[in-house]
Every structure is written in structure tokens, then in C-alpha cells.
């Protein structure tokens, strides 16, 4: 079982596919659930505080906007434990949507810099591409499983 970082991190479809092949998806649902379930913080809607933007300094410098640093405080620790990654570019909103393009640029760069197995695909435009898209993800996940076996 491999810890797979998914991008877009909010994609429930991608998260589900990873889990179906027996791997552990790492995405924002996990990070945000942890925060929302943490008692003692009163900072809705995500239970993030100004301290999180400061924690994000580990991945982005102080001149980087606070929203980028706050997001990196969620994704940065997840990325550090990731053993593989699936990156879907130009995804539809409904597939998974991340709010800040600057965070996305930084995040994709940091994933690639990590030198882990990566599958990078463009979001499919039609049914034929859709079938190839699912097959590519399936093969990647299966191969990862075999490597671990």
C-alpha cells in the first residue's frame, strides 16, 4: 500500500480511485477533516488560524501571500509523507477544484522536485480520452502495488 498524493487535492473521484486499488490517498479532505475535528479552535470554516500561515513559511517565503502559505501548511506536511503522486492538469471544477493558482504552481513544482513516482495526465476532453485516462490511472496504481509486493 502506497501513500499517494493527489492533485487536485480536493478530488473525491481521484481519492476514491486510489483507495479502490488498495492505496492510501492523501488530499485536502484528510487535512481539513483533522482540523475541523480538532477541539478548542474557533476559526470557522476550516478551523485555520493565522498561526497556519506562519507554519507555511516552511514551504513559502514571507513575501508569498498569506493564502498560499496557509494552504501550504495543509499540503506541505502531506507532501512530505507522500510516496507517489497523481497530477491531473486542467481539471474540470466538478472533478476537483483548488482555489489559488499560485499555490497550485508551487505545489506541483514541489511534487516533481520530490523524485517520487508521478503520473501526470491532462483532464480528458471526451469519452475516448476519458477511457484512456481511467486506464492510465489504473495501470499506474496497479504497477505501484506490484512494486510494493
Amino acid at each position: 500500500m502506497t501513500k499517494i498524493f493527489i492533485y487536485p487535492t480536493t478530488s473525491l473521484i481521484l481519492s476514491d480511485m486510489v483507495a479502490r486499488f488498495g492505496h492510501t490517498p492523501i488530499g485536502s479532505a484528510l487535512a481539513i477533516r483533522e482540523r475541523i475535528q480538532t477541539a478548542g479552535i474557533d476559526s470557522p470554516p476550516l478551523q485555520m488560524t493565522p498561526e497556519d500561515a506562519k507554519k507555511g513559511l516552511r514551504w513559502a517565503a514571507v513575501e508569498v501571500p498569506s493564502g498560499v502559505r496557509g494552504r501550504m501548511s495543509l499540503y506541505g506536511p502531506q507532501l512530505e509523507e507522500a510516496e507517489a503522486a497523481i497530477i491531473i492538469t486542467d481539471a474540470e471544477f466538478a472533478f476537483g477544484c483548488m482555489g489559488c493558482a499560485r499555490t497550485n504552481e508551487l505545489l506541483v513544482y514541489l511534487i516533481k522536485k520530490k523524485k517520487i513516482p508521478i503520473l501526470e495526465l491532462r483532464y480528458p476532453a471526451d469519452e475516448v480520452e476519458g477511457n484512456e485516462f481511467v486506464a492510465a490511472i489504473r495501470d499506474f496504481l496497479r504497477d505501484l502495488g506490484e512494486e510494493h509486493d
Binding site: S43, P44, T49, P50, D52, A53, P65, G67, G70
Partner: peptide, 13 residues
């Protein structure tokens, strides 16, 4: 764009 991730949405509210 960004206030909830900057921890300032509560301040706005």
C-alpha cells in the same frame, strides 16, 4: 480568495 486559509475569516465575520 484566501481569507479562510489565512486564518482571518473569523476576523471578517
Amino acid at each position: 480568495c484566501g481569507p479562510e486559509y489565512s486564518g482571518v475569516q473569523k476576523e471578517i465575520n
